[in-house]
Each structure stands twice: as C-alpha cells, then as structure tokens.
C-alpha cells in the first residue's frame, strides 16, 4: 500500500513537470503544445550531448542542458509559433505537432534510435532507497519529486510576487489590455515557452537518468496532457491534483489490471473529465456548449 502511494507520488511528479509546460504555454497563447513530450526528449538529449562532451560534471551538464532547453523553447516561439498568431488556434496546435515530428527526426538523425543511458557518463549512481513505511524508490525518483515541488513553488512565487510574473498573468488573461498598459506580451509569451522548455527538460533529464533515453519518450507527453486537462488547462494549481489523480489511476490499473489498461488509463481520466467538467477541476469555465 505504501509502495502504491510512493509510486503514485513519483509518477505524479513526472507528469506534473510535463503538465506545467502545457499549462504555461496554454495560459499565455491558448495553444496546446503537443510537442511538449518531444521537448522533454530534447532536454534529455541535451544532457546526453553535454555528458559525452564533458563526462563527470553532473551539475554543470544538468544546468546547461536545462538552460539550452529554455533557449530552445524561446526560439521555437520566435520562429514557429509567432508566425501563427492570427491563424486559427487549431493550425497553431498542428504546427506544434509538426514541431514534435521535426524534433524527433532531428534526434534520430543525430543520435539514432538506440536506447541511451547518460547516468554512467555523468558519473552518478541511482541506488534504491527504502522509505519509512517500507516502500522502495530510486534516488532519482526522490529527485523527481523534489524537482517538481521546487519548480511549482518557484512558479507560484514567480507568478504571485514578481512584477514579470504578474505581467505574465495579465497577458495570459487578456493580451490586448495588457499590451495597452505597456506590457511587452510578445516577450512574456516567449518567456512562457522558455519556461515550458525548462520544465520539459527537467522531466527529460530526470527520466533519462532514472529510466532511459530514447527518441520516443515523447509519448509520455501525450499522457501528461490528460493531467493538464483534468486539472484545468489554464490552472497551474490544478496540475498537482490532476497529476495525483491520473497517476493514482494509472498505478492502480497496473496493479489490478494489465499494462495495456494502464497505458490507456490517463485517456480514460481525460474522457471522464471532458464529459463531466470539460474545463477541468480548477480551470476557467470556457468554450462550453449547451445543447
């Protein structure tokens, strides 16, 4: 039982890191970034690149990989998403799909589709830890939980307290009004994408060290948007309960059902949520039709 609980929290943390990227981008630009999973993979491969270039310097590699991913997020906004302003939202969402395809193709071109493990290159180990209560998790599992907690605390503080964060909330709510108050919403949208790249990279780096690294990690991203939707697409606070619910359902269906069911369970959560409360647990009520 404690093991189920521990696994749920670990899986939820990974999903929360990914879903934070969805929510940040959605709040700013109303676009659902279907390439979030591939941006996570990109972060993992940045880490692998740096680990092969300079083995044995984990802190430096992780920091640089995360920074590179944030930069990548910024350029993705400038080069791909900015031209889509004014186009239908769905076209912009499809552009993110093509972005995912391009990222994956680029990764396979450079690194082939072999499974990689950056952990030994960094000179780190990932020993199992026994928690009070008897559950066993790996060290990087704990780090994932810690990273998710730290990221969310930092994001909440940033959005509540810093002037830039407050501007970001304003631009997300109504870009036109924000622009008239002199807020550079283009910069803030780019910043949202950079933060999404950063959050995705954190997930990718942790997952690559904890489990493995291969070009198809992006599939995890599809599951994570179930999390974003259950919590509410525009609600950062909703991500946490959303992640816990989806992870709990998934962990329980691995335990009591079969792996196929576990794979599909996030989508069952998504469908259930869409039927009952399409705007999610904490999202803003929008786009709902009454027939």
């Amino acid at each position: 039982m404690t093991q189920v609980l521990a696994t749920t929290v670990v899986v939820a943390s990974l999903y929360a890191l990914l879903a934070a990227g969805y929510v940040l981008v959605y709040r700013a630009t109303r676009v659902l970034n279907l390439a979030q999973g591939d941006m996570m993979t990109l972060g993992g491969y940045f880490l692998f690149l740096l680990a092969t270039a300079a083995p044995g310097a984990p802190a430096l590699s992780v920091a640089t990989a995360a920074a590179l991913s944030a930069l990548a997020g910024f350029f993705i906004y400038r080069l791909l998403m900015r031209p889509m302003a004014g186009h239908p939202i769905f076209a912009a969402v499809l552009v993110t799909v093509t972005l995912g395809i391009l990222l994956r193709a680029a990764i396979v071109l450079v690194y082939t589709d072999r499974i990689r493990h950056p952990l030994p290159l960094l000179g780190l180990v990932n020993p199992p830890r026994r928690l009070p209560g008897g559950a066993v998790v790996s060290t990087f599992d704990l780090l994932t939980v810690g990273a998710a907690a730290a990221l969310f605390l930092a994001l909440f503080a940033f959005l509540r307290l810093s002037p830039l964060g407050i501007q970001m909330r304003a631009a997300g709510e109504k870009a036109l009004l924000a622009a008239q108050r002199g807020i550079n919403f283009q910069l803030l949208f780019a910043l949202s994408w950079a933060l999404a790249g950063f959050a995705g990279a954190l997930a990718g780096i942790l997952y690559a060290n904890n489990v493995r690294l291969d070009p198809s990690l992006g599939v995890l991203g599809l599951k994570a948007f179930a999390v974003a939707l259950v919590g509410g697409l525009d609600s950062l606070a909703g991500v946490i309960p959303g992640a816990l619910i989806v992870a709990a359902v998934e962990v329980l269906s691995v335990r009591y059902g079969d792996p196929l069911l576990a794979d599909v369970s996030p989508f069952l959560c998504l469908l259930a949520m869409l039927l009952v409360r399409p705007w999610g647990l904490f999202g803003t009520k929008e786009e709902l039709e009454r027939v």
């Binding site: 659902l32 939202i89 939707l229 469908l271 786009e287």
Partner: peptide, 14 residues
Amino acid sequence: LRLKGLYLALGTLA
C-alpha cells in the same frame, strides 16, 4: 456536441 475546438480534439485523441 458540448465540446469545441481544442477540447474536441483532445476528446477524439483520447
């Protein structure tokens, strides 16, 4: 019928 745009896309994907 209740869903539009992105929400519909997500529903069909699920």
